[in-house]
Amino acid sequence: MTYAIEAHGLVKRYGDKAALAGIDLAAPPGSVLGVLGPNGAGKTTAVRILATLVSPDGGRAAVGGHDVVKAPAEVRKLIGLTGQYASVDEKLTGRQNLVMIGRLLGMGRTEARGRAAALLAEFGLEDAADRAAGSYSGGMRRRLDLAVSLVGRPSIVFMDEPTTGLDPRARADLWRIVREQVAGGATVLLTTQYLEEADQLADEIVLIDHGLVAARGTPRELKARAGDRRLEIRPEHDTEKAELILAEVTGLTPHRGENGLLSVPLLDSAVSPAVFRRLEEAGVALSEHAVRRPTLDEAFLALTDTTTSGRTR
């Protein structure tokens, strides 16, 4: 068994629409695989297939070396799942939720209580531990959901958009928890819509759209291809002149946006002072300038279609 998570040509159709149109995934043990993609890309569908909740219409997948269709029971012994929407029992308290899962996994009463207390502390839920989960805020609910999925110390963890709806601090906490899981030897597959998150956590990123893999690679590789940051300028006039200068200094073809907005990928921070100096020398006044990180959409465009990325090299 070389991969903890492995999928080949996964297909899932809903009606005549393909949620997954044949994707391959692979995560070695102890790594974090980030599955990145916009709404409707097929992230949740992929996670649900790997977590044995949905059967694929084509292709095959193995988790911990066990086929998800032929040996779902074996797979379930290894995995922890945090779904896209928190799946806690709202009528139970946080503690009761955790104890219930521990008991279901075969722990004795004392062991289950101990594990629940430890997780409540780790996830900062001690104050709310004995309140019904239905009264939790969205972020608390997510944290409880995550804690619940870790009760059995799974060696393979699936997290579907674990940080959507979390405030920055809770997000940082979650990142810490993911890293701890990995340090403890677990393999994590997490989906996200945030490039930054995948960048922070993932060893390898798979970018999917419309049920197909659009790009894959380490965060470094993908960012280099996406152009990471972009330099944007909006000249008050002389747009043509500014465009020439921008091209000359950066060696890239600037992208022309609305209202004379020009932008180029910023591969080297020293480039922007040089651009500004040359523009000043040429007497081009700017009404606006900024260095911007690419949005997922832009990264996505850049990664899926190199002809629109503005590269000339």
């Binding site: 909740l53 029971a73 779904g83 806690v88 899962i101």
Partner: peptide, 11 residues
């Protein structure tokens, strides 16, 4: 509420 998804993903 997704509670059954959790149960079905458990052994």
């Amino acid at each position: 509420n997704g509670v059954f998804d959790r149960f079905r993903s458990m052994p």
